[in-house]
Structures are given as C-alpha cells and as structure tokens.
Design a protein around this nucleic acid. Structure first.
Lengths: 323, 323
DNA sequence: CAGATGCGTGAACATCTGATCAAAATTCGA
DNA sequence: TCGAATTTTGATCAGATGTTCACGCATCTG
C-alpha cells in the first residue's frame, strides 16, 4: 500500500546504529523504517542478544572491594569476586554469570586451558564472555554429560559455548556423567578418547565449577539422584559437591556407589589445577561453600553479596554448625 | 569535607557495570551505593561520555543504501554516506558526526595520514571515533587556527582530538587561519614548521573537511569575515568554501584578498589528496555541495537524508541555479 | 561583608522503554 | 481442507529514564 520498501526484514545493524549511534528513539526509527515501535524494540533486543550490539565497560573496578578483600583474609583464597544480590533467581543467575565471566577472563592468557564443570551457574557464563582472539585457548569438560534435561546439563555443551564465546577450541568427553554402575564406569574410563580428555582436564590451567549443596534441589547433580541415593550420601557426611564429587565437613572425598559411577576428575585430581574457580550463591550453598573454601578445594570464589556476608559470618564461627 | 553519608564518589566503572552488565535499575544502584537515582543517571551519562562505557554496533550495514548509491550515480563519487535528518541542529550535528566517523574509519589502514579541515561538522567526529590501535596513524591540520571563539575553531585542536580518539599522532600547524594581510601570510608560510606540516598535509592519504556556504552563518570561516569581505567574495562568484578556499559555480578558486591571507592548502593542493571526504548538511550548504561534488573537489560525501535528496534533485537540473 | 555568579543537587514532570496479554497470521498435522 | 498449535504482531500499561527547574552551597567580586 503505502510501503514500497516495507517487505523485507530491515537489517539489524541499521536499526541498532540508528538507536545507539544516532540517538533516535524507537518511535522515530519505526516511522523511518515503516515498522511498529514494538517491532523496533524487539529488533534492538535481538541485536543485543545476537551480539551485533556490544556494550563494554572499560574498567578494572571491582564491585564490592571491601567484601572481596575480607573474604580473602577469612579464607585461603587467591581472589574473591562478589556481585550484587537479587531476590529473583533468574536475575541472580544472570548477574553471577557476568561476574564469573569477568573473573575467568582475568585468568586467560596465551594458550590457557580451561576446564569447565557441570553447573547451572557455570552455564550462565558464556553469554557474558567476549572474544579474546589470538589467545589459542582450550576448553575441556570436567565430567561426562547428563541426559538431556537442559542444555546446561552437559559440560560438553558448556565447553562448546565457552569455546564459541572466547574463540577457543573445545574438547569432548564422550561419556555420561553417571554410568549405570561402577563396572560400567570403569569401562567408560578405559576408553582412549575419554582418557585423553580427562588427562587434558587434569593438566588444565584454570578450572571453573559450581558448588552443589546436599539439599534436594541444590545443584544439577543432586537433582539427578534418587532420594535414597541422596540420603545415603548425606549419611556418609557429605556437605556438598564440586563437579560431581561429594566432600564432607573436612573437605575429604565421600566414597560410595555414586562416586564410583561418576566419570570425571577426582577431588585429588581437581586439586592439581592451579586456579580453581568456584561459582555459587544462595543459602543452599552456604555450608558447602564454607567447607570448600576453608579446605582449599576452591581457590577463587565467585559469589554474591549476601552469600559473601554469610560466608564471612561462618568464618568467625568455624566449627559450630551455623543454623 | 566528606559528606555525612560517608560515601566517596563511587567509581564510574562500578556503576556502569552494575547497570550494563548486571541489569540493575538506576534506582537499585542508587540504593546500593547510597546515592540519589538522579545522580546515578548522571554518572552513567558521564561514563558513556568519557568512554568507560563503549557501545559498538558490529555491522557493515549502511543506513540509507538507496540514497547512497543514487548519489554515487548522480555525481562522480567514490562513496556516499547518508545519515538520518533532524529538525534539531544539535542532534543533526551529533548524528552527522557519527556517520562521518564510520566513514573515515573505513579508510584507515596501516600508516594512513588524515588531514582535517576547519569545520563544525568535522569537530563532531572525534566523539564517535574508536581506538584503532596499532595502525600508526597521523593526523594533520589543513589550515591554521582561528582565534579562540570555540574549540572547534582550531584545526589543531581538532587534530589533537582525532589523534586522541584513534590513538594516532597529531601534527601542529603553528599559524593563524587568516593572517593580518597578504604580506604577513607570506611570512607565516615561510616558517619551516608551517611548511613542514603543510607538506605533510598535501601528501595525506585522506582529507576530511566541511563545506561552507556563503550565507552569513554557513560555516566557521564565513563567520569570521566582515560583511564587506563576504560581499566581495560573493561578487566574485563564490558559492562556497572547502577548508577556507572559496570556489565558484565552476569549482574554480576565487582569488582575492581573503584567499591571499589564508594559511592552508590551495584548492589544487587539496585535489592532490586521493580520498577527499566532505561533510556537510543543511539547506545552506546545498548549493556549495552540489558544485563541490560535480567538480570533484570532494570525492566522498557525508550528509543527511534531506540534503541527499536535495542534491539528487539538483543533479537532474544541472546548470539552472536552483533557488 | 553583601551581593553576584556558578556548580552541584534533588524533586517533579514528560517521555521513552519493555512486559504482558490478546488478536492475527502462520505452520503443521490429520 | 480444516482445525489446532505455534509463532508473530500490535495495544495497553507499569515502570524506567532523562530533562527541566528551583534551590542551596560554595566561591568570586565589588
């Protein structure tokens, strides 16, 4: 009718530029391009999502310097990164991912190998990473993959996302997270491809993993276990897990059936990685985090303000169970 | 001196990051940092201004492809860059600067020398340029500097801004734009420092200048002339100027007292630069632009939609003076 | 020292933006 | 071919943002 050129989808770049560089309002762009305002709003959102629009903050400022250094004194840490706290779980995850992304980025240098664990928090990272071209980075999964519940459930998928985001190379660990039984697990571990990737993970420079609690929904791993299995693990003293390996209040491995079925690095092997970044937040994780920090399972902490404050409180009352 | 709420000025980087990376609202940041919402709004604006926050659009899309290619056919141009049109002069200038910045950037390669002319439009560019590190760029003024009315009035200041923005090296032309008289101008031109910079300008790879009209307020140069001088120039057939050199309807130089007093490249010397970017918009400039384009004084055009359309109309009615 | 001038601040307002929801269009399957 | 499910679209509205204005505090000036 009136529009002679209104047929094709207008290029995102044009819209984005009109908005961000030329300062037109959504409405003005809509009029100019023959679209509805809402459509422009959505196209702009897409442009940001896809990465056509990139917003960078050039600054080394840390967000909560005080808390970060306090944590560094209270626990044996190389670094702590603290982000804002949120009521909403979705926002919290998003934000934590942003902090974690800044954190890993700080550890990337030429040829760095990063091992990634299975964790919802870790899955939130790739979206915030920015290309670090020319660094020749390698990304390795820490464990096998869990049946396809959600995308985040597979460290392999995660490794791919990371690799795509930072322009690195991803390796595959062709095995399930949990084998049917101890016997099957042993078979998997003998697979040469599995062995190769696990070795690569052991010798990684940086490790990034979530910390799981032992509450029923505190972590992706826990969610894959039956109530019975979980109860057994708790009975044996487990307070949390890192990359699928449960540990007790002394930071020691918790043996058992689940542990034998799991395909991935052992706690001792994890310790071999010099930089061990733990990402977690929330009341569920408080106990597990405190232990992981105190016993050096984790080296670098990424968390939010409220968890950080809780951890500082725990540090003052070391052994007494905080309730 | 510290305020009662005990907060020192919080770092811009923190605020910017909370907003752009973590998605807090201004209000939330204000509460978190103990500031008023408005203050946060202002700090964020400052962060963008200073360049702590950088918004990049990764796209090669041109804004008005149709107009740009039409101009390319109607006039002997290498390229045309067209931006949106605005009622408001301030916005128009800002926007034109953004387009011009994209345009010059497209011509920057290793070791490029850019010569910058005296122009309000050109002055709007540096704010939109982004660092192109490692290119070893040189920025040279095309003319001497005008007495300190506004910052934009000095090509030297401009060259410095450009150089700072793209991380290049700026050269100085230590001379006034207009000498007291022809005699004084000759003396200035004999100065070795002046000669050296002028030579550098003549052999520049890219030239970027505004186009001035002959209306009383159409251009920075014109504003510095007396009504009598201006009348004289118009009588001799001048329709506009580029970098201080007036030209007539045939694109030929307009000699005279002003021309002799001016310190800067001649029209012929300007033509020696392979890429000649002209930046201008508005009804005032229409006439001058059409001539400059038709006779190849300018090689690459940066303008806005409405000026572009006017120029296309002029191209159809070549010689008849459009009034 | 009073008055003038400029800068920084926050309140109120106007505008812009993004989320929600319902209608329309499209695709897919029977 | 029709209908159902899914996606796309636009209207409405709540909330976020930015601008304007008036005030207070500081410094400058006579």
């Amino acid at each position: 009718m009136e529009r002679t050129n209104g047929q094709k989808q207008p290029p995102l770049g044009k819209i984005a530029r009109l908005y961000y560089e030329h300062g037109l309002t959504h409405q003005e762009i809509a009029d100019l391009c023959g679209l509805s305002r809402i459509k422009v709003t959505r196209l702009l959102a897409e442009a940001r999502l896809v990465g056509i629009v990139e917003i960078t903050v050039h600054s080394d400022d840390h967000l909560f310097v005080g808390l970060e250094s306090a944590l560094g004194h209270a626990y044996p840490l190389r670094q702590a990164w603290v982000g804002p706290a949120f009521e909403d779980e979705g926002r919290a995850l998003h934000s934590l991912g942003a902090v974690a992304a800044d954190c890993v980025t700080a550890f990337l240098t030429e040829g760095t190998t990063v091992a990634v664990g299975l964790s919802g928090s870790v899955a939130a990272i790739p979206g915030h990473l920015r290309k670090a071209t020319g660094l020749d980075l390698s990304i390795v999964p820490l464990t096998g993959s869990k049946g396809g519940v959600s995308r985040a459930a597979s460290p392999h998928e995660l490794a791919l996302s990371f690799a795509a985001a930072v322009d690195g190379r991803a390796y595959h660990l062709p095995a399930p997270l949990l084998a049917r039984n101890a016997q099957a697990a042993r078979v998997w571990r003998e697979d040469p491809a599995v062995q190769e990737t696990l070795e690569r993970a052991v010798s990684a420079d940086v490790l990034i993993a979530g910390i799981g609690g032992t509450a029923a929904d505190a972590g992706l791993l826990v969610q894959g276990l039956s109530a019975v299995e979980l109860a057994g693990i708790r009975e044996r003293g487990a307070v949390g897990d890192i990359s699928g390996r449960f540990f007790d209040a002394d930071g020691a491995a918790v043996p058992g059936e689940v542990d034998e079925r799991l395909i991935g690095l052992s706690l001792e092997q994890l310790r071999a990685v010099p930089v061990r970044i733990g990402v977690a937040r929330g009341a569920d994780k408080r106990r597990a985090l405190a232990v992981a920090l105190r016993h050096g399972l984790i080296n670098v902490l990424v968390t939010d303000v409220s968890t950080a404050e809780a951890l500082l409180a725990d540090a003052d009352a070391p052994e007494g169970a905080p309730s």
